[in-house]
């Protein structure tokens, strides 16, 4: 048999080796999640400072300025990044987070329209995404973070608005930014 042909055992070995190594090699680019987690946290803390009259700005200004930075940086990074192959897993996770970001934007709009706090809804969205990512990755840190964000959403209902700002910022850093910083591989 020519060397270029395979017997079934060799074929199976190649398929197994390639599939396993491919799954290990494709990572999610976490910088987007870290960026947005940080920006939402900073926006929350900034609004808290505005509420305490420490910063003389309109209350809504952090929610225009910081997400604005996020959009610009995301577009620049997205356009300039070296594109790599896209696994089905990463495709699913990216689509999920894209949908959740739209849900967060709509929640924010609905909450502001009804003059209620948006933070429980934001934390539920981020918590849901983090939890699903954690279960898919079989990563306990993300699963626990997702649960923590969900508990934070419930706790928001029992505290005044200005404390919700601090809680939201803290949850974003502890439940979103830190897990993405300390977890290197999918």
């Amino acid at each position: 048999m020519p060397k270029t042909l395979l017997n079934p055992n060799e074929s199976l070995a190649i398929i197994q080796k390639v599939v396993l190594s491919t799954r290990q090699d494709y990572h999610i680019k976490r910088k987007f999640y870290i960026l947005w987690g940080l920006l939402i946290a900073i926006a929350s803390f900034s609004q808290y400072a505005i509420q305490l009259n420490l910063i003389p700005l309109p209350w809504y200004s952090p929610w225009i300025f910081f997400p604005g930075i996020g959009f610009i940086l995301s577009i620049i990074w997205g356009l300039s990044s070296k594109k790599s192959s896209l696994s089905y897993y990463n495709h699913f996770v990216l689509t999920m987070w894209f949908t959740l970001y739209i849900a967060m934007g709509l929640s924010l709009f609905v909450a502001l329209f009804n003059e209620i706090s948006p933070f429980p809804y934001l934390l539920i969205c981020v918590g849901t995404g983090t939890n699903i990512s954690g279960f898919l990755m079989k990563n306990r840190i993300f699963i626990i973070s997702g649960i923590m964000l969900g508990l934070g959403a419930i706790y928001c209902l029992f505290i005044p608005f200005h404390q919700q700002l601090l809680l939201n910022g803290t949850c974003m850093i502890v439940g979103n930014v830190l897990p993405n910083l300390i977890t290197h591989h999918v």
Partner: peptide
Amino acid sequence: NSPVRLAIMSILLTVK
């Protein structure tokens, strides 16, 4: 039934 082509197809099966 060739190593490289089989590897290519195996990779493509796991990625979009």
